[in-house]
Every structure is written in structure tokens, then in C-alpha cells.
Computed example of a mutant assay.
Amino acid sequence: MERPPLGPAGIVVDLAAIRANTRLLRATAGVSLIAVVKADGYGHGMVESALAAQSGGAEWLATATIEEALALRAAGVEGPVLCWITTPTSDYAAAADAGIDVSAYSGEELDEMAAALQGRAEPARIQLKVDTGLSRGGAPRAAWDELFTRAQQGESAGLWRVSGIWSHFACADEPGHPANDRQERAFRDALALAEERGLRPELRHLANSAAAILRPSARFDAVRCGIALYGLDPAPGEATGIGLEPAMTVTAPLLMVKDLAPGDGVSYGHRWVAEQPTTVGLVPVGYGDGIPRHASRPGAPDAAATVGIDGKPRPIRGTVCMDQVVVDLEGDRPPVGSEVVVLGPPSAGGPTAQDWAEACGTINYEIVTRIGGRMSRRYVDSETGADA
């Protein structure tokens, strides 16, 4: 029998879903929306996701690094952009020239910025990040006064305009966690102190995706939405009813079908052994493409991640390899070349990113952000029915 042609494993991103999610989040929050497109748009494509979010009503974009923000500008993306990770070698002048808001965490960082911005005709735009309890980036409470005072001095000197003050929740995906109240109170304390020191930022923002949906009191002037922008629940079990649309679908062809007898071991280390006659299929994706190696759950095979073939969940069996995985077809023999749905929205007929996260003991953010490797990425627009 002639072997059918096989397409490569690939990622399809529906830009209409990103637009729809942006509109939904913007309407839910009722304030400006900062669309976070860092890490290549959480695996969805930074530039394409940024443009889709803007067309859906996002007033701002955000990246982690200056380099990501400059890449947006190089691609022709306009509009306000915020970034928040810098190093002593960061090109503050280039960011200022491109109209990018850069975050400062400390007086020392402001001194570095001041040295780089001397002699500019127009003030740069900076935002100040305060640590309200995440204990990650941002000025700790003991340093707020120094940060605000130094920032106001630089603003008076014409070096920069303090355009925003912000912070980040640690536990917004757990709406009942007491840290949320503490952090919101701390943020309000920081805003009051900044005002005492003469700062009047145009943008005060604290809420991430989960808080944007679940915590109205934390919305302030804007919310920062990342994972929800791409249609994934930022607080599984808490925000499922809002109507987000997953934008990513990952598919691959079925390469081979074979029979196994009882006692046949599968993949490296024979960490899964057939207990009864079955059929298995070979799928050409592996950890080189971002498939978690522990997805097969060798110690708990009943909890293994699955893929979808013919609308049925097919569990991964044996160790995930760099380039391929083996799935249990349980006696079925779908044709070689059949579409394998690695992940996608429920309508795609396979597991969701959240299903993968639960099987692998991680979060949906990690699943979609790490997927890719050698996979192609294609954009569609389900509103128009055309490739984008």
C-alpha cells in the first residue's frame, strides 16, 4: 500500500482568539490593558501576538527585556511598550530613543540610567517597580523612599518622566490567599509615599492575569495580562468560566503503527512494559521540541500525558525521547499519516495545555512557552477563515 504524504509537526496560532481574549479581558477589567508578549509571546510568536492584542484593544505591550522590546520596534510595532529586566550593560539610550518605558528597581539602577541618558533633548520614560511581597524584582520597602526621591530628582532634572509605578502579585491564582490583601495594602502604601515625594505617575498597575479577572480592587489604572491573553486559565478552577479561547494548537503526523505482545518494553529503559497485547503509534515530537520528558509518568502510567488521535486520548508510553514519543493505541490501527493532536483547545479533539500541565506537575505557562524546537509555526484567523 502506498504510504501517504506526511506533514511536519507544527504549531497553529489563531490570532482571532488572541484578539477575542484581549477584548474580553479589557471589558472585564474596565481599565487599560497591558498585553504581555515576552518569551516570544509565551510560545505564540511575539510580534504576531502583539499586533493581534493591539487590534483587540490593548493599549500597552510589555516584554521582559529591552532586547525584546527593541525587536518589537524593529518589526514595526508601535504604541506604548514596557519592559522590566535590565542589567548594567543594558542600552538605556536605545530604549529611550525607541520610546520604550524601562523599569527601575533601585537607586543604583537609576544612577546607571542617568549616566546613559545625559545630554538627551527629550526625557526618557521610566517606571518604578516596588516589591510588595513577591521577594523577586522590585525595590524592597526599606528602599522605597530612596527610589522615589532619586526618581523625583531625575524627573526634575529633565532626565526622565516617571510614567508608572507597579508591582506583582505572588498568589493571585489563589484568590483566598492572605498574601493578596497584604500586597495590595503595601502597594497602596507605596503609591502614597511616591505622591508625598512628588511623583505623579500616569499608570499604576499591580494586577496580573489572575488578579485582572478575580480581584477588582487591584485593577488600578491598568492590568497586565499574559497567559490569559493566549486563552489559558491563569487560576485553574477559579477563572474557568470567563470564556477565554486557547489560541494554540499543536499537531503532528502518526508515523508508524505496530503490535506489541505482553512483556514487550517500550523506549529507553523499558520503563513501561505491555501487560497485554496492544498496538502503539510513533509520533515525531520529543523533548527537543519542548515535550516534557517526564510526560509518560513511568511511576504512574495511568496519569501519563495523552495526545488525541481520532478524537480519543492516547497515553504516552515509555520514556519521551528527543525526537519522538510512543503512544498506546489500545488495539486500534489508525492509518499512518493520521493527525495527532498534541495539544489545543477542547474543540481540537486532544488534550489542552492545562491537561499537559496536570500530567507533568507544572503550569500551563510552561507547557506553551517551551513548545516549539523544530516545529513550524503557522498563523490563522478564525474570524476571516484565512491564513494570517
Score class of each variant (00 low, 15 high):
residue 9 A to N: 07
residue 18 I to V: 15
residue 26 R to F: 03
residue 27 A to Q: 13
residue 27 A to D: 15
residue 34 I to Y: 09
residue 46 M to Y: 00
residue 49 S to F: 01
residue 54 Q to A: 03
residue 58 A to L: 08
residue 66 I to S: 00
residue 70 L to H: 11
residue 73 R to S: 09
residue 78 E to R: 14
residue 79 G to A: 09
residue 91 D to V: 04
residue 93 A to Q: 06
residue 95 A to Y: 08
residue 96 A to F: 04
residue 99 G to I: 14
residue 99 G to P: 13
residue 99 G to R: 13
residue 100 I to T: 09
residue 113 M to D: 02
residue 116 A to I: 07
residue 117 L to Y: 10
residue 120 R to I: 06
residue 130 V to R: 09
residue 131 D to M: 02
residue 132 T to N: 01
residue 134 L to G: 00
residue 156 S to K: 14
residue 158 G to I: 12
residue 163 S to C: 15
residue 165 I to R: 11
residue 167 S to L: 06
residue 180 N to K: 04
residue 183 Q to N: 11
residue 200 R to N: 08
residue 202 E to N: 06
residue 203 L to A: 09
residue 207 A to C: 09
residue 211 A to C: 13
residue 214 L to T: 07
residue 219 R to W: 08
residue 219 R to A: 13
residue 219 R to Y: 12
residue 224 R to N: 09
residue 225 C to H: 00
residue 227 I to M: 02
residue 233 D to Q: 07
residue 237 G to W: 11
residue 242 I to T: 03
residue 245 E to W: 10
residue 246 P to L: 12
residue 247 A to D: 03
residue 249 T to W: 01
residue 252 A to R: 01
residue 256 M to S: 14
residue 257 V to P: 01
residue 257 V to S: 07
residue 262 P to V: 08
residue 276 Q to T: 14
residue 278 T to N: 06
residue 281 G to P: 00
residue 282 L to C: 07
residue 287 Y to F: 15
residue 287 Y to N: 01
residue 291 I to V: 14
residue 299 G to R: 11
residue 304 A to W: 01
residue 308 G to F: 03
residue 317 R to D: 04
residue 320 V to N: 12
residue 328 D to W: 00
residue 328 D to L: 06
residue 329 L to F: 10
residue 329 L to W: 05
residue 330 E to K: 13
residue 331 G to W: 13
residue 348 A to F: 10
residue 357 A to E: 05
residue 359 A to I: 10
residue 361 G to F: 04
residue 362 T to Q: 02
residue 363 I to A: 10
residue 371 I to Y: 03
residue 374 R to Q: 11
residue 375 M to E: 05
residue 375 M to Q: 11
residue 376 S to C: 01
residue 385 G to S: 10
